[in-house]
Computed example of a mutant assay.
Amino acid sequence: MDAIQIIVLSLVQGLTEFLPISSSAHLILPAQLLDWPDQGIAFDAAVHIGTLAAVMLYFRKDIWLLIRDWTLSLAGKGTTQHSKMAWYVGLATFPAVIFGFWMKATGVDEMLRSTTVIMITTLLFGALMGVADYFGKRKIPLEKINLKTAMMIGFAQAISLIPGTSRSGITITAALMLGFKREAAARFSFLLSIPVTLGASLLVILDLIKSTEVIMWGELVSGALLSGISAMLCIHFFLGMISRMGLMPFVVYRLLLGLALLYFI
């Protein structure tokens, strides 16, 4: 890849990872629409590591409390809201892990990297997000989450492995349908992104280490840094915006993008 492609794709990843518009779709589409060489799974993993670092840095206080109280609960020193949340995040990650391994083992993940699939999922889940944002009761705070609702959001996250679905979009949609407040839905979505992104990135890194092909580590490191910086800014502004404006601007964007893709197919 040349410098322009690296910069564009890195910034796109950082700005779209936590917006409900599908970062995977925006990483795949430039290569197909602008006739760029596909950046491949390795670069996708690198920029995801950048956004992972951003969300862990932004929520560092929350993460510390989750890990601390979870560890204390394992030692038999009682349970807290934070220890419960840690269990919920961990258990809700399993559906995506299982679905991800199945997709990788069967080659479905590569088969789904197409403009047609992205067009369908962009329109379908964009419309569903609009329904959830408009009709959702938006009354339940994050402190009221339980294992059942966490697992339901976790199953929604598994579907997001299909390009164009949007991990944040479908998890926030599921949370809104369950009655959670917008900011609560977004915060749980961000926390839920950490283990699944970390696990997927580690697997790709292990594959790269074992590979005999030449790895352009400079491209990967540059992509990770740029995506991480832009993701930090995105998280900050998105959390403030979602409580005021809701998801309708993103619904409109997704529907327009889906229709535009339908024209190009």
Rank of each mutant, 00 (worst) to 15 (best):
S193A: 15
G136E: 07
L262N: 08
A200C: 08
D62P: 10
D38S: 14
D35I: 09
L9G: 01
I98D: 03
T93C: 09
E17V: 09
G154M: 08
V47Y: 12
T116L: 13
K210C: 01
G246V: 11
R182F: 01
A224I: 04
L123G: 08
G240M: 11
E183D: 08
E143P: 10
G164W: 03
M1H: 13
L257I: 15
S10R: 02
S166K: 07
A92N: 05
L19M: 13
M245C: 13
V131E: 07
L206P: 10
L225R: 03
L65V: 00
A186Y: 01
H82S: 13
T197W: 01
A158G: 13
Q157K: 11
S23Y: 05
A127Q: 00
A224F: 02
M103D: 01
G223M: 00
F190E: 03
A86I: 05
L178S: 12
S10Q: 03
L233V: 13
D35T: 15
L15C: 09
A185E: 02
R244S: 15
L29F: 03
L176W: 04
M103P: 02
I140H: 15
A25Q: 13
A127G: 11
L128T: 00
L15W: 01
T16M: 10
A186V: 08
G14Q: 07
S211R: 09
A86W: 02
V214F: 04
H48T: 11
I49C: 14
F250C: 07
L225F: 09
E219N: 12
G218K: 07
A184D: 02
Q5V: 10
L225T: 06
Y58V: 11
I153S: 12
I49Y: 06
Y88W: 11
M85H: 01
C234G: 02
L142Q: 12
L256G: 11
I235A: 01
R138L: 12
S83L: 00
F101N: 06
I153W: 11
E110M: 12
L147K: 15
T115V: 14
I170S: 04
I242V: 15
Q5K: 08
